[in-house]
Amino acid sequence: MKVAYWPGCVSRGFTPELHGSMAKVAPLLDIELIELDRASCCGAGVIAEHNQELADTLNARTFALAQRTDGELMMNICSTCQGAQSECQERLDANTEYRGQVNANLSDEGLRYEKGLTNKNLLWLLVENIGLDALKAKVSRPLSDLKVGPFYGCYIVRPVDRLAIDDEHPRDRYLHWVIEALGGTVIDYAGVYKCCGFPIITMNKEASLKQAGRHLGDALDAEADCLVVPCPLCHLNLDLQQPVAAKVVGRDLGMPVLHLPQLVGLALGLSPKELGMNKHIVKPMSVIDWSTSVVASAAA
């Protein structure tokens, strides 16, 4: 399938391994990515905090650029983008007059957002468009014996109404389902649906890293080999800041944190290095050991 692809900012900034691993995994999943390279930051809720119309216009511009492509839908790889963009889209779709005002801002550039765009995080697309059975069929190296803790974060599971999470679309179970479809073992722990703390890292560093540290510690106590996140901002607090978070909570952590496309890529046969795991601050030893043992047993 062909999708208008919005990678977000951080996947091209401090987590380049996310952008890179998505590019490697896409062809294996038969996803053709049309990158929206002229689009701008979603605002991460901060621009909306400053000026709602500005955030809505910037995202309407991104949506309009997506609608100009021949992609089936728009896809992102960042929960924060998903949440911030869904919030703007909710307002744009709810009110014709307001949508008209926002479109007037875009008219100089010849762009116009038409109500009803489908914008999905890779996680939703895996389950709803590719399908778990098709995903299973593509697995060449099941994640057997790998114990993975899902870390959903906030923006992709709340608020449930805005994100259309219901009986038919229990999107707050999808990370569990994907780990299982890839052959891994799901580890439930206290932090599965909690906040990584990133949004307040510059305002209240201690509270921010206490959140990250606690969830990592809980996952460690539950004996997870690694965590998987659909959001690069969570990755910043959970991986990049992990050594500092460990000091804040006063315990050793050493918990590897994988981006969603990296976990998928592992099961589709890519190596940890090809997936950019050498760029992680916490070296994912458990994952590397697992992958070497799988390769060794396959060779034997």
Binding site: A64, E72, R112, K115, T118, K120, W124, E128, I130
Partner: peptide, 30 residues
């Protein structure tokens, strides 16, 4: 929220399951 009927209202929230996915969701192009 405006409650006007939309031709693609079902796909509007991006919530259609895979098996129902036939027509492209982004038919309305600028």
């Amino acid at each position: 929220y405006e409650d006007e009927p939309e031709p693609h209202a079902e796909g509007a929230a991006g919530r259609e399951p895979a098996e129902e996915q036939s027509a492209p969701d982004m038919e309305r192009k600028a």
